[in-house]
Design a binder for these strands. Structure first.
Lengths: 206, 206
DNA sequence: GCCATATGTCACTGGCCGGTGAGTAGAAGG
DNA sequence: CCTTCTACTCACCGGCCAGTGACATATGGC
């Protein structure tokens, strides 16, 4: 009946992992407003003292989350990107925009971090934000590859605007389900947004 | 020496106005995270009990702020919009986008409300958010006027995306001064963003 | 002048927060 | 068996919060 390997009651590694997982869950599910030492400890089922001992408090915990965030790219982006060699720059950016939209829609943790960045400026949040930004940049660069944007277009700023519009829409959809008069609830709503997005991208990149 | 009209020590109207002004200042300057009964009372220099009596607590206070928000349009938008009759729809949207950008950059209160919408979903915030959304919609409609968008373009969704990109950029600039790898600090940064924005608008609206 | 009421203040409760020092219990080594 | 170290828990602190009931004082009608 008994497992040969009993659950060790005292296992620092396991406890650290439990705390980190609890922290990510609290942030993703309850939001950054409710995120705190007490909430994480409660969710992890251990005393908050352990968070101070193992992670050095909230800031250390956020750094640990930030480190994990590097894997976001691998989790959400198709690695091989097969057949991409035949795309124009506009096609590439369209694909990137749609991937970013779906990735953000599927990942509440990253959404919360994105919202947190806009709400507060503090050292821990800045670090977390930087980790996300770095992951995002490496992702864009990886996809950009060999293709060159059309001349006369500031691709960096333009792409930032496109990413910005997507992020704002997704964040607004979660809290209010709408933005600037349009609804953002059903799959149909998102399809309309996707096609408008495609038009914008191809409009600017030809 | 004495003024003929002495300052009345007990003046409900004046006190209400002082509380409302204090609330707006707290929200605009300290952010929604620090916004609360105590903070507002402290800033207004009166007891928090008065906030409960005169406004019915935080939610009533937020509704009062929302009502004031209707004047946002009048404050920031040139009323006559002279010479607009000769613009194309693309020119119109370009003008609208740039106006919205500058208005948001200049108004910390509205920025905070916009950020609050993204951070929290609660009844009071929802109402405040609706007031802002309504003001925004009436503004767009007023400017839209007689011009029709090109056929085959979903102008509502497209415009929402443009507004979203601007809002995200402005909110990000305040807390972190950057977004998606671009800097958002100097006037030059914003000029680059403005020209990219123009290109996008004219790209999609021809 | 007198009193009712509107206006404003004070003191308090209960709850949650981040943070800390002291104590407990299991595991490892002799 | 006994010590020693490590993992872990408990109880507490001060501070801030929202909210409330009791109290003080000015104002205006009579």
């Amino acid at each position: 009946m008994n497992e040969t390997v009993d659950k060790p009651l005292r296992d620092r590694q396991a406890t650290e992992a439990r705390i980190l997982a609890a922290a990510k869950r609290v942030l993703a599910e309850d939001g950054f407003k409710l995120f705190g030492i007490n909430a994480v400890a409660r969710r992890a089922g251990c005393d908050k003292q352990l968070i101070y001992r193992y992670f050095g408090g909230l800031s250390g915990l956020l750094e640990a989350i930030g480190s994990d965030l590097g894997s976001w790219v691998k989790d959400h982006i198709p690695e091989d990107s097969g057949g991409m060699f035949l795309l124009t720059y506009g096609d590439l950016m369209e694909r990137l925009a749609l991937l970013f939209l779906d990735a953000l829609l599927a990942d509440p943790l990253v959404r919360q971090i994105a919202a947190w960045e806009l709400a507060e400026e503090s050292e821990p949040v800045r670090k977390l934000s930087e980790a996300r930004s770095k992951a995002l940049a490496s992702w864009i660069e990886r996809m950009g590859g060999s293709l060159q944007p059309p001349k006369g277009v500031d691709a960096t700023v333009t792409n930032a605007l496109i990413i910005a519009s997507i992020q704002q829409m997704v964040l607004a959809s979660v809290t209010s389900g709408r933005f600037a008069g349009i609804s953002l609830k059903t799959g149909k709503d998102w399809d309309k947004l996707r096609s408008a997005l495609k038009r914008i991208v191809h409009g600017v990149y030809g």
